[in-house]
Design a protein around this nucleic acid. Structure first.
Length: 191
DNA sequence: GAATCGATGGTCT
DNA sequence: GACCATCGATTCT
């Protein structure tokens, strides 16, 4: 059962954290392509210099300003699509970028925002879609809460002090992250 | 293994 | 005309 709009109508950092361990589902051609979300990033509000919304409302970023529980999909570097899930009330621009999944079934590699959209078959035609039902939605996590680590966001060095905010959330134990977690050195390396 | 680099197109100034 | 919330191949050590 898809997560309801109320899930997305909350502070962006909470949504980004709570999405870890949930299942992203895309129903396409009668099939289900799914993966467990293991990495997200929060882009929160007009003041966040790393956010597409930082320079105000444009045609591209309009979904970020819309109601929660919708998709914001954009094309990056002319090649890759990135999927965001819009959070917070209408008028407040915010979204969570889905950066990596643990692929399920026959789904291809999902360790990166461009890879996961390709694996699930998500493109610009999904921009603005309502996420509270098929074809694109998120299922709640089952089982125990995952152990989560935070890091600065990837690829936003231009954003000054906003770049260092720990707004990237990853499942600590996942081997499907876009960028591996670097843990503090602790004794000799094994294997 | 690390570093570098080209691809490729929509969006905004 | 410049700029990317990236990826994969290639070229180094």
């Amino acid at each position: 059962m898809p997560l309801a709009r109320a899930f997305y109508d909350r502070p962006t950092l909470e949504v980004a954290r709570d999405l870890i361990g949930c299942r992203l589902v895309h129903e396409i051609d009668g099939a289900r392509r799914t993966g467990r979300i293991v990495e997200t990033e929060a882009y929160d509000g007009p003041k966040d210099a790393a956010s597409h919304a930082h320079r105000g409302l444009t045609r591209r970023n309009a979904p970020m300003f819309g109601p929660p529980g919708h998709a914001y999909v954009y094309l990056i570097y002319g090649i890759h699509h990135c999927l965001n899930l819009v959070t917070m009330e209408q008028g407040y621009p915010a979204a969570v970028l889905v950066r990596a999944l643990e692929p399920e079934g026959a789904v291809g590699p999902c360790h990166g925002p461009g890879r996961l959209t390709r694996a699930l078959g998500i493109d610009l035609s999904h921009n603005g879609l309502d996420l509270t039902g098929p074809p694109l939605y998120v299922e709640p996590r089952r089982g125990p809460p995952p152990s989560i680590a935070t890091t600065p966001r990837i690829g936003v060095a231009y954003a000054g002090r906003w770049a260092s905010r720990p707004w990237r959330f990853v499942e600590r134990t996942s081997r499907h992250l876009s960028v591996p977690l670097v843990l503090p050195a602790r004794g000799p390396r094994r294997r």
